[in-house]
Design a protein around this nucleic acid. Structure first.
Lengths: 341, 341
DNA sequence: TTGTAGGCGTTATCAT
DNA sequence: ATGATAACGCCTACAA
């Protein structure tokens, strides 16, 4: 297959009449090598088109300079933005990233985790599809002291590092906001409640109802997969309810937008009859009319912080004091879809 | 760092009183090994918690089973969806993916290419930020016969494989459609024209104008970075034009949507005064009102086809006959933003 | 400052 | 069907 032989440090050594060790050290800018030799080596390496063989080095050093990334799905606004942030930092520090998505399949998620382990990544960045009841899947990483950083969706295991936002608080704020705008029957559209972010948002929502003197009932909760279609379905569902809500808080903007749109097309006045709020500050939230009240999710920052946290950990430079959980700032953005004044 | 020693095939061999070679062969399901031995080996490997060391194997076999992925930016609807498709196929065939983004920096793009080369990827999947005048950057890949598949934005080099859509044709169709709806001054908002997709769309647009008996003038062309902000700016620009267009074809939906929104807020009637069309079939195109006429971009399919094409090539199974360019089907979707009847 | 030599864990080529 | 052995290319004590 390969056209010509790969150049090795031995080839360089031969041409320069020095030892391979000297070449190796020169390439690594080792202190103990004279500047003259170093220069010669670099020049020759360049001339001969040498490239270091990372396998040989990895095999020797037992390090890969590669980070594993596991997410539920790659093509979502939040996830892809987080990844962009991760890539920024990783490339700055010379780390490669291997990606994988589970697409909601627990089986694929497990196989991805194993794949990452077999690829011997130096560390792992994970956003779990569902709340793992136990962290057995990651046991091998913990056992070998391979750091695992959970982002977006955190993980309760004390051995894990977490980079998250305060889902409870944000959901609480959004729901209170809706209540303050005069809503008394606030519906919550969310994802699988075994996923901690959705569970936390649900708790925040319920707490806000309680603190606002409003009551919760099961018909106010709609669990879906939060897709576009789920939004449309939710809208149609609401249209058929006899006792309609006067407020909706959806756990993501995309679903909220399509739900809102469906209702609007059926003649429902937003926000007068039903006030709306979403989550994420997705671009659609600024296109839908009325613009969607939402929560500003610091995606890019989260990616950068998570990657930095992992890399710091790998270099022994723990900046994240003793805390094993970083909570990023995020806040509600009130827009027309919920403002009734 | 590591807790306990890694298990090697030698450890397994010792425990089983056989040779390491036999263990290696058993693990690979080699024909010449008795079923009994194979079973024993597998059982013992599992019991001892063995995992193959891919570096050693890579070092030996000179293969990485890793694909490199280079894109302008990771967090866009089109790109993230393509990546999702790539991941699907890659993981099915047991390939890892390392990602990188250039963020529009030619320097970072070059450094990413080099990084991929040094990582010794088996093949490369590339969407170039700008049209490279020369393919020198990829010379090292071509020289070593490492296959490079260009997707989204193709590449003219005869040694490259391409997976693209017909940008010229789609742009032509969209523009003709606008003309048929009665537009006579159709503006084109696009990205850097040194990027081939934008150049092709521009050509398709101009050809359609000509074939519709309309004339082109420089004030009908607006080059931007196609971001949200560029859309708003474009809208404001149009508002200030004395001789306003009566149709707008933007090279991406996100930009089109924000432009449309800006005009609408200023009281411009869409599509009566200005008809609109975008490109990509991004979710925002179905949220903006009126819904945006656009071109259905087969992102997911493109990712899958590109990955499949690369992997086939690696295994010597060229399915893509002699053609080195695959053009995926894509078509215009007419929606309210351009329908004047 | 530089050289020598052994080993990282596999796979592949010979043998047996 | 299995074993012995030599690479693969690099790093790093230890020596000089």
């Amino acid at each position: 297959m390969k056209e010509d032989k790969e150049i090795t440090i031995y080839d360089i050594a031969r041409r320069l009449n020095i030892s391979a060790a000297t070449v190796s050290r020169s390439l690594k800018e080792h202190q103990s090598i004279s500047t003259a030799t170093r220069k010669k080596v670099h020049a020759m390496a360049k001339e001969m088109g040498y490239r270091t063989n990372s396998f040989a080095r990895n095999l020797r050093t037992q390090q890969t300079h590669t980070l594993g990334l596991i997410v539920p799905r790659l093509n979502s606004y939040v996830v892809s933005s987080i990844i962009a942030g991760i890539e920024n930092i990783a490339s700055e520090y010379g780390y490669n990233i291997i990606i994988s998505q589970s697409l909601g399949s627990a089986k694929k998620e497990t196989s991805n985790i194993n794949m990452m382990f077999d690829s011997r990544v130096d560390g792992l960045l994970v956003s779990l599809a569902y709340n793992a009841k136990n962290m057995d899947k990651f046991k091998m990483f913990f056992d070998k002291n391979i750091p695992v950083v959970f982002f977006d969706r955190g993980c309760e295991d004390p051995r894990s590092l977490n980079v998250v936002i305060d889902n409870y608080r944000n959901a609480y704020d959004v729901t209170r906001h809706l209540a303050e705008q005069g809503c008394s029957r606030i519906m919550h559209i969310t994802g699988d409640l075994s996923t901690n972010i959705y569970e936390e948002r649900f708790r925040g929502y319920k707490a806000a109802l309680r603190d606002s003197g409003l009551s919760f009932s099961d018909d106010l909760l709609l669990v879906s997969d939060l897709t576009e279609k789920a939004g449309v379905d939710a809208g149609n569902h609401i249209l058929q309810m006899t006792n309609k809500p006067d407020g909706v808080f959806a756990a993501n903007d995309n679903c909220a937008a399509y739900c809102l749109q469906t209702l609007k097309e059926a003649g429902v006045k937003i926000p007068q009859e039903i006030a709306f709020a979403g989550f994420n500050n997705d671009p659609v939230s600024r296109i839908i009319e009325p613009n969607l009240t939402t929560v500003n999710y610091p995606c890019h920052e989260m990616g950068e912080v998570a990657a930095k946290c992992l890399i710091d950990h790998l270099s022994g430079t723990r900046t994240v004091d003793n805390a094993n959980t970083v909570v990023l700032r995020s806040e509600i953005i009130a827009r027309a879809s919920s403002l009734r004044k």
